[in-house]
Amino acid sequence: MGNLVFVLILLVLLFPAKGEASDYPARPIQVVVGTPPGGPADSAARMVAEESSKELKVPIVVMNKAGASGSISAAYVAGAKPDGYTILVGMSMSLSAGFALLPDIQYKLSDFAPVARHVVFPILIAVRADAPWKTLREFVEDAKRNPDKYKSGSDGGGTALPWEAVLQSSNLRVAHAMYKGSAPNIADLLGGHIGISTTVLTPLVPQLEARKVRILASSSKMRDFPEVPTLAESGYPDAPKDFWNGFLAPAGTPEPIVDKLSGTFRKALNNPAIQEKLARIGLSASYQGPAEFREYLQKEYEMYMNFAKKYNIRL
C-alpha cells in the first residue's frame, strides 16, 4: 500500500492536473475590452498585453465589445469558460459603480476572479481656454446666478459621476448631456455647444498643447498638472476620486492560472517604458494583486452604493 501511495504522488507531481499553471498558456489568450479601439482603456490593455505576451510566449489578442458602459463585455466574460483564456478588462463603471447605477446588469461581482488592477486615472472638468471661468467655483457661482443658461457634457458612463456630484451638491440647473465617448463631447465643447465638460486626459492632451482648453478640477491629483485642484479641494469631498481598469477572469478560474497571469501583468507594469507610455495618455500604472484587488472592488462597490443613494442617481 505504501508503494502504491508513493507511485500516485509521483504521478501527480510529474503530470499536473489540467488547468494548472505549469501547462498554461498553451494557446492565445483573449482580452475583452468594453470600449471602442483607441480609447485609454483599450490603449492600456494593448500595452500590457503586448508586453505580457513576451513573458507568456503566446499572443494576447485584444477584442473590443463596446456598449452599455462596459457591461456587455463584462457579461460576456462572466459567462466564459474559466480556463484562463478569456480575460476581462474591467472598469469602474462596468463593475464597482455599475452595480449601483446601471439598472439592467446581468452579472454579479462574485462572477469574476480578480487578477490584477493595472491603472488608475482621474476624471477632469474642462472648459475652453477663452471661457470666463478660471476656477470651478467661478463657474458654479455664475451658473447659480443664471439658472438654465449653461449646458454641460460628459463622455458618458463613469465620467458623469463627479459632475453629478457637483450639480446636485450645488443645486445647479445646468443641462447635462452624456455623450457616447470623448470625441463628440470634446467636439461640442470646442464648438461652443456646451460650456463645460467632464472627460479623461487622453483626448484633452492635443487640445491642451494647442491651448484650446483649460482644466478647472480633477477627481484626484495629477502628476503632470499639480496646480489643478481636486474636486475635494474645490468643495466636493463626496465626488468619486480615482477611476480604475483591471484584469478579471471568470469565477472558478484555477488559482495557479490567476497567480501566473497576475505576476506577468505585474512584471509588465514594473517596466519603466510601459509606465511612461501609460503616463503619456493620462494613466498611472497601479498594480494590485488578486487579494488586494478583490478587497478594493468591495470597498468601491460600497462607496458607489452610498453615493447613488445619497444623490439618487441612476444612469
Rank of each mutant, 00 (worst) to 15 (best):
G84S: 08
I72F: 09
S69I: 00
A44I: 06
T86Q: 13
A45G: 01
E50Q: 15
G84P: 10
G39S: 04
A68H: 06
P59R: 10
I29Q: 10
E20D: 14
D23A: 14
M47R: 12
G84R: 10
S69V: 01
Y76K: 14
A21K: 09
G39D: 11
A49E: 05
P36R: 08
A74G: 08
V48E: 07
P37F: 00
D83Q: 08
P37Y: 00
G70I: 05
P82S: 11
Y76P: 01
S73A: 15
K54P: 06
I72E: 14
V61Q: 14
A74H: 04
A74Q: 01
K54S: 14
D83F: 05
A80W: 04
G34Y: 04
P82L: 06
V32S: 05
Y85S: 08
G19T: 04
M63W: 13
V89I: 12
L56D: 03
A75Q: 12
M63C: 09
I87W: 06
L88M: 01
V62K: 05
G67A: 06
K65V: 12
S52W: 02
R46P: 02
S53A: 15
G34Q: 03
S71A: 09
D23Q: 14
E20L: 08
M47I: 10
T86Y: 07
A26T: 06
V62R: 02
Q30R: 15
P82H: 12
T86I: 01
P37V: 07
V89R: 07
Q30H: 15
G39W: 00
A74F: 04
D83E: 09
E55K: 13
K81L: 08
V31M: 11
V32E: 02
P82Q: 11
S43V: 13
Y24V: 08
Q30V: 02
R46F: 07
K81E: 11
A41P: 05
Y76R: 13
A75R: 14
A75S: 15
V61P: 00
P82K: 14
P40K: 15
T35S: 15
A26C: 11
Q30N: 14
A45N: 07
